[in-house]
């Protein structure tokens, strides 16, 4: 019953958040300079052609009208159609005029659904790698506050946080892929293409996990109930693994919810560098091409994913620690 109330409330709140997000992104796209029509019709087209196409596409209506139209579509699950990509999946070459009002343009929903699994796969692997790196280091650092394990965790976290992801990506591509030919890097032709980008992303996320884990575990180990567990007769293994870690997990789970946007942001850049066919790559290409419906669709999708994962995060935090307010 408590969980049901929580879900209903949070989903309602989530819808509100997604709605505000869509409003922000929709307005931003239309108030900042940069006319998509100019790109669609090509630089050479005379201004009256631009105006004609723009009016036909509805881009000259007041923003509120455009937004209403967009929302109506959204409620029916329709995110609109791409300005640039035809159904066949080929990008219209610059200057070549494809009429974006015709129905042969790819629906944004399809474009996103096609790419989403790739991105989720990459994100999931990256998270897994990050946890594999940071758990041993973070736990050791948290348990031994004044020993070398803590210094190791501190050093590793400072180092990782200081490596720009794109730079690491280039270096890894150069050495592991081009020189040593250990792993494939560019494009996507199978699972092995995920490993390198996932490693780069993992290095980006790991320092946050290490830091939270060392701090929160260190704090929990000072708690009176951990101290008293010893005199109650529990073994050290039991104290650490079934009580201290459990309590230290709550801040960690919350952190994952908040750092999710870093992860998504990282995915975007990494996909672009590795030419990985996910949502991030699509975003960069769409932004450069001013493909408004695709950008909007992606923003709404990521914010929905963000909201959804944060609901799960809070639920997990509650299941671990019943004192957490949900």
């Amino acid at each position: 019953m408590l969980i049901l109330e929580f879900l209903v409330k949070r989903i309602a709140q989530g819808l509100l958040i997604v709605f505000i997000t869509s409003l922000i992104i929709f307005t931003l796209l239309r108030v900042v300079p940069g006319d998509p029509v100019r790109l669609i019709v090509g630089g050479m087209a005379p201004p009256d052609v631009v105006e004609k196409v723009a009016t036909k596409m509805g881009l000259r209506d007041p923003i509120i009208v455009q937004y209403g139209r967009y929302m109506r579509g959204l409620l029916q699950g329709d995110l609109g159609q791409s300005y640039l990509r035809p159904r066949s999946g080929m990008i219209a070459a610059g200057g070549q005029y494809v009429d974006p009002t015709k129905s042969d343009m790819a629906p944004v929903t399809d474009l996103i659904l096609e790419r989403l699994p790739f991105t989720l796969q990459l994100g999931g692997m990256a998270l897994l790698f990050a946890l594999l790196i940071s758990f041993p280091v973070g736990i050791a650092g948290g348990l031994h506050q004044h020993r070398w394990q803590n210094a190791l965790a501190f050093g590793m976290q400072s180092l990782f946080v200081s490596i720009p992801n794109f730079w690491l990506a280039i270096v890894l591509i150069l050495f592991l892929s081009v020189k040593l030919k250990l792993l494939p890097a560019l494009g996507y032709q199978g699972f092995s293409y995920v490993i390198l980008p996932a490693v780069v992303l993992a290095v980006e996320i790991a320092p946050f996990i290490i830091r939270t884990l060392t701090t929160s575990l260190g704090e929990v180990m000072q708690a009176p109930f951990i101290d008293e567990a010893r005199v109650r007769g529990l073994s050290r293994r039991r104290i650490v693994y079934s009580h201290a870690l459990r309590n230290a997990a709550v801040p960690l789970v919350n952190l994952l919810g908040i750092q999710l946007s870093t992860l998504i942001g990282g995915v975007l850049v990494i996909e672009y560098i590795f030419d990985y066919p996910g949502l991030g790559n699509l975003t960069v290409v769409s932004v450069v091409g001013r493909d408004f419906p695709v950008i909007q669709g992606i923003a709404i999708t990521t914010s929905a994913v963000f909201v959804f994962i944060n609901i799960i995060v809070d639920l997990v935090a509650y299941l671990i620690d019943p004192r957490v307010e949900i």
Partner: peptide
């Protein structure tokens, strides 16, 4: 706080490249 939540749910890099990509 609701505006904050909404803003937080759009990864900052998407927001940044959207604005910068579209403007100069």
């Amino acid at each position: 706080m609701r505006i904050t939540d909404a803003q937080l749910s759009i990864p900052m890099i998407i927001l940044a490249i959207t604005i910068l990509g579209v403007s100069r």
